[in-house]
Design a protein around this nucleic acid. Sequence first.
DNA 1: CCCGGTTTTGCATACGTTTGCGAAATCTCT
DNA 2: AGAGATTTCGCAAACGTATGCAAAACCGGG
Lengths: 337, 337
Amino acid sequence: MNEKVTSLEVARLAGVSQSAVSRVFSGASASKTTVAKVRAAALDLGYRPNPLARAMITGKSRIIGLVVAYLDNQFYPMALERLSAALQEKGYHMLVFLASNSAQDIEKVMQELLDYQLDGIITASVAMSNDLTARCAAEGIPVVMFNRGQDGSGVSSVTSANVTGGRRVADFLLAGGHRRIAHIAGWQGSSTGRDRQTGFLQGLSAAGAAVAGLVDGMYNRDTAAQAAVHLMAQPFPPDAIFVGNDHMAFAVMDQLRAIGLSVPADVSVVGYDDVPLASWGAYDLTTIRQPVNRMVEATVDTLLAQIEDPQRAAQRIEIDGPLMVRGSARIPKGHAR
Amino acid sequence: MNEKVTSLEVARLAGVSQSAVSRVFSGASASKTTVAKVRAAALDLGYRPNPLARAMITGKSRIIGLVVAYLDNQFYPMALERLSAALQEKGYHMLVFLASNSAQDIEKVMQELLDYQLDGIITASVAMSNDLTARCAAEGIPVVMFNRGQDGSGVSSVTSANVTGGRRVADFLLAGGHRRIAHIAGWQGSSTGRDRQTGFLQGLSAAGAAVAGLVDGMYNRDTAAQAAVHLMAQPFPPDAIFVGNDHMAFAVMDQLRAIGLSVPADVSVVGYDDVPLASWGAYDLTTIRQPVNRMVEATVDTLLAQIEDPQRAAQRIEIDGPLMVRGSARIPKGHAR
DNA sequence: CCCGGTTTTGCATACGTTTGCGAAATCTCT
DNA sequence: AGAGATTTCGCAAACGTATGCAAAACCGGG
């Protein structure tokens, strides 16, 4: 039914050469009259340049690969939405690759990533070994890791200021008068998990306090809930828990309430991310906000800059975010909400 | 650094023609020895066929466009994840298009959709006018609407059995002894919203009951919360509310609790979707499960079948889902949980 | 009106694959 | 072993665009 209309047909109708049509649509120089004739003919025929053909010749597909593991954590859908919107604005689109974190699976995804002539890659939440990211870089495809850092490897990354954030939580809980503070950490295989923990522990020891329990929650609801049970079963249970991200914090709150404890009366809970759900009535979670918008902006800027200039050095961007004080943790006296 | 290796180089190394290489990788006939030689050479050079070049000549890109409006509702990230995984399994990938529901925006997205040589399109949650879907169909691109139906238009759709589901909720609430039952409906501009409401009202009137309040919640948290307030401010407020989807139901529960009402003691709440959050402790929401896995399966099957055979008639698939009985609504005596 | 300089234009080729077509090779059966 | 049927192979032409190069058109100034 639909005859795909090519630049050649437009050229014929406009009475110019095919190259002229190409130049008009690729923004190269052309005289006023030519542009007018071509535009008219194109509109008439309903012509639009074929991105695939264009990609093949230029080597630029205007497609960005997004590699993501899971979308359970509300933070990622949000980021995905924002990233896609931002890229769309710049004339790019996102091809989605799911990589459950098994090494074998990632290997397969990597192959496909390289097949498509992606202009760039954004990895979110996925644990790519140094090897793999390095290989991408070697293939000359710009990579930006979103919400995950990687020391040493020459790969760009955008995260929030996780160390600072962790520290901020420690300060806040200490100011609230808590003395037995535990931490259900983010997955220690990830930089975010490690950094938040580092900052948090720094904050505690700066005040001469020891951590009252420390478990790796693996960014997993069940693991975190179990950890909460264990922590509270100790002879001297904590009166505050800093949880490595909101996703786990919700599980922890559910669990604490299930065993009859009140938040924050019995135990304060603080999360990390500030996903939309954190502000909903049922949780009202005090948490560090990851400034998604600015993180997305930085990610896109970095990626596009790197696409423009492949020689550009890898960036390592950290964006600070505020503590959102809500009702899940005791509020220090005199604290300005 | 990275020399892109082409089929021609493989051919040279293997001592065969370029066409032979192509045939080996496109699954056409070739002799054992040729296959072996080519495979060896390809492995040696690290060759993999270029999907873009392939797409250009065959007209098949193995890319499916996913058009989605928002990802706030936890149902969609989940669906997206499953869809992407299922497609990946079949050798397809998903290009994401964000379409905030403004007509102008959709128009732009549509143009881009047509530019890329998409093999098919899945629309989720987005309100495409008959005109637009029809245009896609006219261009010969198979379209499947996920979680949204459209009467008349010859476009395939996959939904849950929304009428049945709505009816099921009515029956359940009536069995629970409720007599003043209100409905905060899903957006009436969508088939899901309308169908659920239809089934629900049918259920009520079959039992001779009238609805104790009916508002369009627009699938929006704030609207739904406002609606809840208004409903409860009536002289004879409802003792049960069926909310058009979980996303709004959470807002309603938050709101009810905020004004000092207890769920389900004062008022029962039932949702629709059964997103993960529904089973979490803080809400423990009774809701109709939309069987995402089977819906995704049906969507992918339908789409691929339509790609195989463009003459295939549009399907209209409805998949029934059970009521997940939890704690947010009074449980009828003797009801088997 | 002519000349140097700047744009603009068309021609032809390239990008990396698939695929129809005839030639060559292989197989099958007597 | 040879004829016919079948399979495999290479050649070359697509697919729809971008772009280097040289010719053509245009510009302003003397």
